[in-house]
Simulated assay, not measured.
Amino acid sequence: MTQSNSKSRFLFVCLVFLTAGFTTFAQADERTLSISGSGSVSAIPDQMSLTFWIEERGNKLSSQKSMVDDTTSRLINDLNDKGVEDKDIRSYQLQIYPRYEQNDDGKREQDGFVVKREVQITLLEPENYDKIIDLALARGVTRVGQVQFEISDQQGLYQQALVNAYEQAKNKAERLATAAGLKLTGTLSIAERSMSRPMVMQMAEISSRSNKVSLPGQQTIEAQVEVIFSTKTLSGADN
């Protein structure tokens, strides 16, 4: 082996040991910090969905269905006049079933039929809710279902809630790192811990000064994340 090759081999071995020592030192100096965070965004619902039922009872199915269809048609026309578009109305659900009554002997006997049509509406102007209910009842709606208030841009607000959750986690991590003599150096991973569908919490807000009867209140969309941060020891810290 020549003298030149010996020197090269010696320098290579030294470099390997120096690199290994530096890596070990860096790993000993670097630590991770796992922190959970939660964030929320509040908004007033800007739309609602409601369900009506139009029902007829009797012994002649054809005439009962015709009456239900006529009432439904007039209701849809009235809704259109109030600004509700056809794309926000679903009226295809039709139910037909026998009706039973108990006779004097306690036995159940068929007593005609029930024809029922379900009409679902998405109302983009919630302030018109009371007027729409009055209109539906006057038109012949026999039952009104539970009203659901909704936020049209739920996904957009949920994304903002996720950002707020990360910011909270980062603030918590910075405080804890400082207390432990560490410094944040980066974000290693972020895991979404909340449901993919925004979790909406209803918050009732009714003003005594308002002249409205039905108010949607405020809804809060929440999100949770788990974040792993990389840290390093501050110079002079005893850990």
Rank of each mutant, 00 (worst) to 15 (best):
Y97N: 11
K116H: 04
I96P: 00
V213L: 15
S66Y: 07
T122I: 14
Q3E: 15
G217W: 04
Y158T: 04
L157K: 10
A237N: 12
Q110P: 01
T142G: 03
L157W: 02
L79C: 03
T220I: 15
G181F: 10
R197H: 11
L33I: 14
V227G: 09
S42G: 08
Q155G: 02
A161E: 07
L123V: 03
F12P: 00
D153K: 04
S189Y: 05
R139S: 15
A161T: 03
S34L: 06
G21R: 06
F22A: 15
Y166L: 05
S36Q: 11
L184V: 06
P45A: 09
V200C: 01
I44K: 15
L94A: 07
P45C: 09
P98D: 14
R74Y: 04
A136R: 03
I89W: 05
L124I: 01
L215R: 09
V141G: 02
K107V: 07
G145C: 00
G181A: 09
E118L: 09
I221G: 01
E226V: 03
Q47R: 07
P98F: 03
S34Q: 11
A191C: 00
Y92H: 12
Q146A: 01
R31K: 15
G106W: 12
L75G: 04
G58N: 06
Q159I: 02
S62H: 09
S230F: 07
V119Q: 12
K131Y: 07
S49H: 07
E118V: 12
Y166N: 06
A169Y: 04
I89V: 14
I151S: 03
L123K: 05
Q224D: 11
R193F: 01
R175Y: 10
N59T: 14
M201E: 14
T233G: 01
G186K: 12
Q168K: 08
E125F: 01
R108M: 13
T32P: 00
I76S: 08
M201V: 10
V225C: 08
F12K: 13
L123Y: 02
E30Q: 14
D105M: 10
I221D: 05
G37M: 10
S42M: 12
N128Y: 03
L215F: 06
V68E: 06
G39V: 10
S214V: 14
V227A: 13
Q160K: 12
T71V: 07
L61W: 12
K116F: 02
R209W: 06
M67P: 00
G37Y: 07
T185Y: 10
S63F: 01
N77Q: 15
Q102I: 00
I76G: 04
S208A: 13
M195C: 00
A169P: 05
E226C: 01
D153P: 02
